[in-house]
Design a protein around this nucleic acid. Structure first.
Lengths: 121, 121
DNA sequence: TATTGTTATACTCTATAACTATA
DNA sequence: TATAGTTATAGAGTATAACAATA
């Protein structure tokens, strides 16, 4: 049980290092990961990230300022705004993914095949 | 491989929720965990946390202000300062541990026995 | 001179509360 | 009135650089 928490910190450190190497935060990294196969609106995004909607505004602002994501206004409800990766954001995410997997592998932190189904319902 | 990163975020959220419920941050939570069976000096603590020594000063300041940890000056080298849990800090950490394990269990996130040795060298 | 720790400064991330625009 | 999103504000966490005290 403690092993799971220790594992979490070790992987978290790897994620943080990888993000930092590209001058990104773990929150920005997580944002890119969530947007890989989604185009959520701000509130929905807040739910995925587990933070308040007001925090998402700033998070998306900074990611957009770096050209990684863009806001997409809804055609039917002018209050709603979706967020999606730009091409640059998609490329950045893929680079990070590769580096992270390499680092995880190098650290010898691979879940055995049997654990995967247990762990990702 | 992706499963490991997803698992990390899920456990990280559980840790964050548990810390928040006691008005603590994940960094403070991690600090308490590290000090469970150690009495490191500031630089050593920075190494464990993976942050700069200047960040540790503030982290320990805030934890000390809440009575969770205390600074212990070295008897032989007056530059060095060790950090240890107070009794209150030890109690707080144990409460958090229980709550975290309960939450992890409730989320169905248990590593199968075979994974443990793989994962914590 | 080198090392340990703190301080000054600036930025990101976060929540709460108040606000705007739209429904 | 209710909802989606932003802004204002305050606090924590972080790094860099400069500093103080000690070795």
């Amino acid at each position: 049980m403690d092993a799971l928490v220790q594992l979490t910190w070790r992987v978290y450190d790897i994620l943080d290092d990888a993000a930092r190497a590209h001058d990104l935060s773990t929150s920005q990294l997580r944002l890119l990961g969530i947007l890989r196969d989604r185009e959520p609106e701000m509130l929905e995004l807040a739910g995925h990230l587990g933070v308040d909607k007001s925090s998402v505004s700033g998070l998306v602002d900074r990611a957009a300022a770096r050209g990684l994501v863009e806001r997409v206004p809804s055609a039917t409800d002018r209050r709603r705004i979706a967020v999606r990766l730009t091409e640059a954001g998609r490329a950045q995410r893929e680079i990070l993914e590769t580096e992270i997997y390499t680092a995880i592998d190098r650290a010898g932190l691979t879940l055995p095949p049997g654990a995967r189904s247990t762990v990702t319902p």
